[in-house]
Computed example of a mutant assay.
Amino acid sequence: MVFGATGYIGGRLVPELLAAGHSVRVLARDVGKLDDVPWRDRVDVVRGDVTRPDDVRGALAGQDVLYYLVHSLARTDFEHVDREAARTVAAAAD
């Protein structure tokens, strides 16, 4: 499970995981951002938001490993949003 696959690092991690033979699921608020990536048809894409507990729990169902590569630097309150999102993912993973 990759949270942040539409970002710089996540977009480079996903093809590496696929090349290593892993099944990959990604969560994206805007799944359209994945339309042009070459690995789009090789991953399970879940529409959702890391700030919504139900979205995160659903995305994590059946997953063994998660990568959390999310940030909200485009927002002025990014510290608060990032902290709450990280807490949401940690609680769901627990």
Results as ranks from 00 to 15, higher is better:
85 A>W: 04
30 D>K: 05
55 D>N: 02
61 A>D: 14
69 L>R: 06
50 V>M: 04
92 A>I: 15
6 T>H: 05
69 L>H: 10
48 G>S: 02
22 H>F: 03
11 G>R: 03
27 L>H: 05
21 G>M: 14
40 R>Y: 01
85 A>T: 01
19 A>D: 13
25 R>N: 03
14 V>I: 15
92 A>V: 15
35 D>V: 06
47 R>W: 06
60 L>Q: 13
3 F>G: 03
69 L>S: 04
64 D>R: 05
74 A>Y: 10
89 V>S: 04
36 D>E: 11
75 R>V: 11
87 R>I: 08
29 R>G: 07
41 D>K: 06
25 R>G: 05
83 R>C: 12
23 S>N: 12
37 V>L: 04
19 A>T: 04
4 G>F: 09
69 L>A: 13
37 V>D: 08
66 L>T: 15
34 L>E: 08
16 E>H: 10
9 I>K: 06
64 D>G: 07
54 D>K: 09
84 E>H: 13
21 G>W: 02
18 L>P: 09
12 R>Q: 15
1 M>Y: 10
33 K>I: 00
62 G>C: 14
71 H>T: 14
85 A>K: 01
67 Y>L: 06
1 M>T: 09
38 P>S: 12
35 D>A: 12
50 V>P: 11
55 D>E: 05
71 H>F: 07
46 V>C: 10
91 A>T: 14
59 A>H: 00
4 G>K: 10
88 T>W: 06
12 R>E: 08
60 L>I: 13
92 A>N: 11
39 W>V: 12
55 D>G: 07
84 E>P: 03
32 G>I: 03
4 G>M: 10
52 R>K: 14
22 H>I: 00
28 A>F: 02
58 G>L: 01
53 P>Q: 12
19 A>E: 14
92 A>D: 12
57 R>N: 07
21 G>K: 05
64 D>I: 03
45 V>P: 01
47 R>M: 10
65 V>C: 11
67 Y>N: 00
59 A>K: 02
18 L>Y: 00
84 E>V: 15
6 T>L: 03
17 L>N: 11
15 P>K: 01
21 G>E: 11
4 G>I: 14
32 G>F: 05
13 L>A: 09
10 G>H: 07
10 G>V: 13
26 V>R: 02
21 G>S: 12
8 Y>Q: 13
63 Q>A: 12
2 V>Q: 00
5 A>S: 01
76 T>V: 09
74 A>P: 10
94 D>K: 11
19 A>P: 01
1 M>P: 07
83 R>M: 15
83 R>Q: 14
74 A>S: 14
